[in-house]
Design a protein around this nucleic acid. Sequence first.
DNA 1: GCACTATTGAATACAAGTACCCACGGCGTT
DNA 2: AACGCCGTGGGTACTTGTATTCAATAGTGC
Lengths: 221, 221
Amino acid sequence: MTRGQANLRRQSGAQAVYELMRAKIISGEFRPGARLTEPELASTLGVSRTPVREALRLLIAEGLVDQLPTGGSRVTPLDLADIRRVYDIRARLEGLLARDACTRMTQPDLDALARLIDLMHRLRGDETEVLRIGREFHARIAEIAENRWCDQLLHQIRGHVDRYRSLSTREPGRPDLAVAEHQAIYEALASGDPERAEQAMRVHVEQSATSAAQAAGAVPS
Amino acid sequence: MTRGQANLRRQSGAQAVYELMRAKIISGEFRPGARLTEPELASTLGVSRTPVREALRLLIAEGLVDQLPTGGSRVTPLDLADIRRVYDIRARLEGLLARDACTRMTQPDLDALARLIDLMHRLRGDETEVLRIGREFHARIAEIAENRWCDQLLHQIRGHVDRYRSLSTREPGRPDLAVAEHQAIYEALASGDPERAEQAMRVHVEQSATSAAQAAGAVPS
DNA sequence: GCACTATTGAATACAAGTACCCACGGCGTT
DNA sequence: AACGCCGTGGGTACTTGTATTCAATAGTGC
């Protein structure tokens, strides 16, 4: 300690710029391949180049922005053939998370997951609600696993996954299937077999991949 | 090519600072938990705060540097209990890479790998040489797989893995075992069965994990 | 081929915030 | 009554975050 503190709790401008740009890239508001220049972004966002620069660096490291050989940068173009690739990675990372969660889980944790599964069954008709609960289910598992590095990598991969997801206006409609898969993950976790938990999660994510690939592939533009 | 190309820009400045600091953290020259301040780093490295800042941001995003709640930053402390975690991740990412490589591989690719395996057998006695060839073997597989995202994540995880590795002065001496494992990976690739290739690679990395955990755990100081 | 322009990279200057240090005063104890 | 301890308050110093300025380079139009 030295004295200086930076207001970490308050979101710094650079962090805000990063999150904003990331969201815009993922949502597609910043189109794939769109050219990005620091001065323009800075003036658009009403800040100086400095925070923009930092945000850009992070986005480049994350792979959401490409640095052109000429020196400029652009939103990383999307290649439909890569959907499978990012989902393959996600499947393994989330699978590992499920495995870790399985070994660290306590009874209350399991109960909480059971409640989510129950909710999912009862709201089976409401697709968006099922999706929301599904996300919470995954988040809960990540929380239980307490695997900092896996979380970190997953955050990055999820960015890419979500880019492809946002290509199709509608989520792949496979509500019943999703419920069944989550149920399977829950049962695997409850069984206490880490290998089985990892497998169940992997299968689930890979199923999502298939749906997403179909949905994205069917999109005109 | 005669005149300065754009890549000169990439190498100098912030990128250089990033790579230097990263190497120092991995090697342990920057001790775990050591406090890092921008002005001090800047004056030490003979540059201004700006490139230091950018490098720090990347290292923070990578998890090699922690941002303290108070605002400062420090080299992320090492927790021996996490060795298994980072290796688990690496095992799955490298496994996936092996799988992808298996499906994309051409005969010349396979031949190149065969040459490496052959070399490894012939230099079986020279531990450092076996290690070098092992690294090249993995690099070649990554090259064949052409999985940009996997590479990117692996780069990050490898940073953490190498930090733990550098804890033990000597590499875990299991040369024959390593040769056998690489041989197994090669055979799996040659068989053309992606699942088998992934498994072989995963087993190999997990074996390394066990050795590394023992070596790091046995370190006196 | 040359000048111009636009953009990035680096350095410096400026603003803001917080923890540490120390001095001071009140209070309890001897 | 004197001495010491504790809590508090302000000043200081160090650090981060942002803006601005300067330099260099590549691309473009004439």
